[in-house]
Design a protein around this nucleic acid. Structure first.
Lengths: 235, 235
DNA sequence: TGAAATAACTTGTAAATACAAGTTTAAATT
DNA sequence: AATTTAAACTTGTATTTACAAGTTATTTCA
């Protein structure tokens, strides 16, 4: 009946409290039984929420002791699905649209194999520069198969998470994905955007992102300048 | 009573079957209820095993349909805990010990903050080169705090997973961790080992690895040549 | 025959319960 | 007082039950 499941609500709540500093590093979260009482739910449900927090790297659990809040990462977390991207430095992380959103047709080879439906549909192209403290940190190039995305190209993307828009307007939620990482030399174009010399080492991520819409994936190619801040991930 | 929990057994079994090709990409695993019947366990237990497979990127689940086997990754999976390292290409992945194992004392700054106990204990140092198809793929430098690791320096590490040794002889299992990624220029030393020119882009991972032993972490600094095969990860 | 309704599957969420195992605190014993 | 023991916590594993929700195959009806 509930649109969002209970464990999700508890997860979001605890996550927010950790990010906001209600619980600090090393603190113990309320025990599972206490969370049960407070929110009037059962332990399996609480544990489902806590598992998600562990998976996101927000807490560690220790048998007999409790759920210990982890330190918030120093770098930028884009390795896990909702792990830390939305958690850290989102305040001073600005977004600049370089190209799009505009509809294009697939041409040439692509970083991931595409289905027939995807090929026929074309894609929405968005190229963005993400800026942290006035310094360009990463350039992300996004490919969203143009399947059931009405009025997408006319939406505003400035300083807004792509994920948020997909969730809010199209009820598309990211459920996971796969990625490849490489260290490459920046070419002329990437170098200009990231303000590094041509040939400078840059981290390249190629991602295929799965959603709650069955068989709907979208794709991102991300170039990171890791000189200032590293990419962070929990596992 | 059971030394290893049931869900772990089922997880290992299914994982092996996927890796061995019993279930191929796109195949459906037996349904949860079927796995219950076959292994004489209950659905929450089965689901715990399947969750672990999802987390490792081996399957995707679709409500109403089933558990769909994912494609085995092309690259080398060292991003997740037991995700794909041990799954892919372990046959032709050779290991060459460059230094150690030998006990050393901490000196100077370290990539992660250390506890007092860790500082006082020193660490076991191991430097290894991992070779895939006669080509050096990555160089890993490991720091294991020298706490309760009897006879560690005298063990043989050739062509053997560090994780395996820790599990087998010391009952230490990797439960998770955190990592930072950077694209850097190879220096003289790294360039020589990885057979790339000095200044060539190399992927650098700094990892703090958590274990089932409370407060026991170990650390790895990994340098990857991603020219031939990328680093792969599911999330 | 073709479309719609139904049944029989699948996974997702959730409750209530039980005991095992690790940690901490308090009490009892020496 | 110091040590040991026990109790009261904590999380880990597991069962049983129930219904919701999505998918597929079958049946029914027009």
């Amino acid at each position: 009946m509930a649109q969002t499941p209970q464990y999700r609500r508890i997860y979001e709540l605890l996550r927010k409290h950790i990010v906001d500093g209600v619980y600090k590093e090393g603190d113990l979260l309320p025990s599972e039984n206490e969370l049960c009482r407070v929110h009037n739910i059962t332990r399996p449900t609480v544990r489902q929420a806590l598992d998600a927090l562990v998976h996101g790297g927000f807490i560690k659990k220790q048998q007999g002791k409790g759920s210990i809040v982890s330190s918030l990462p120093q770098g930028i977390g884009i390795l896990s699905v909702s792990g830390t991207t939305s958690a850290v430095g989102i305040n001073n992380l600005k977004t600049k649209i370089l190209t799009g959103p505009e509809v294009r047709a697939w041409a040439g080879a692509f970083m991931f194999p595409l289905s027939q439906v995807e090929k026929e549909s074309g894609y929405v192209y968005i190229e963005r520069l993400r800026i942290l403290d006035e310094k360009p940190i990463f350039l992300d190039v996004n490919f969203l198969p143009n399947i059931n995305l009405p009025r997408f190209t006319s939406r505003s993307f400035e300083n807004r998470s792509l994920f948020d828009i997909l969730r809010k307007f199209y009820n598309i939620q990211v459920t996971g994905g796969e990625q490849r990482l490489r260290a490459i030399k920046a070419d002329e174009n990437i170098g200009n955007h990231l303000q590094v010399k041509k040939g400078h080492p840059v981290l390249h991520l190629e991602r295929k992102i799965a959603t709650n819409r069955v068989d709907y994936y979208f794709y991102s190619s991300i170039y990171c300048n890791t000189d200032i801040s590293a990419i962070y991930g929990a596992f």
